[in-house]
């Protein structure tokens, strides 16, 4: 037991680098499309932490080993969808992304449950889900 405690303590000194950038990139989705305020608020609360170049880190997210999981989520999440680079996707891929995002929400797969366990603020209400799916669907159909 003491051994474990010491190991966990030592682990705290090994912190993954932070995913933070202060400016809003030119290709950021907010610079490419006009996001309705409510849509933007939900994305910030529930998606940007893993799908943009700017993660907000509450203190508990820096506790190991959770911080490593978070870094891993960010790495994989950004490879799938990065809102900070959204404007760099072709129109065809943007449509695919909008559709995939809507699907993930409909299927209840995003945000990851392992994350909302700790980050309750990111849980989507039924209303949030409808707002997002509705907007994603409209974007998918309207952009060319």
């Amino acid at each position: 037991m003491t051994g474990l405690a010491i190991a966990l303590l030592i682990l705290q000194f090994f912190q993954p680098s932070l995913n933070r950038s202060d400016e809003l990139s030119a290709a950021h989705i907010e610079n490419v499309y006009v996001l309705p305020e409510n849509v933007k608020a939900i994305l910030v609360q529930s998606c940007y932490d893993c799908h943009s170049n700017n993660t907000r880190y509450p203190w508990y997210s820096r506790i190991q080993p959770g911080a490593w999981f978070m870094a891993k989520h960010i790495q994989h999440g950004k490879a799938e969808v990065n809102f900070s680079d959204f404007g760099e996707y072709s129109v065809r891929r943007r449509r695919s992304k909008f559709r995939a995002m809507s699907g993930q929400i409909k299927n209840g797969e995003m945000p990851l449950w392992s994350y909302t366990l700790m980050h309750h603020h990111a849980v989507l209400s039924t209303e949030d889900k409808h707002i997002l799916m509705d907007w994603f669907g409209r974007m998918e159909d309207s952009i060319k």
Binding site: L11, S17, N19, Q64, P65, W68, F69, A71, D85
Partner: peptide
């Protein structure tokens, strides 16, 4: 799990997306 994560995660954070 943290240990496993570390051992297969050498410095590959935040590299290019897509």
């Amino acid at each position: 799990m943290a240990f496993l994560t570390i051992s297969c995660n050498h410095g590959s954070k935040n590299e290019q997306s897509s």
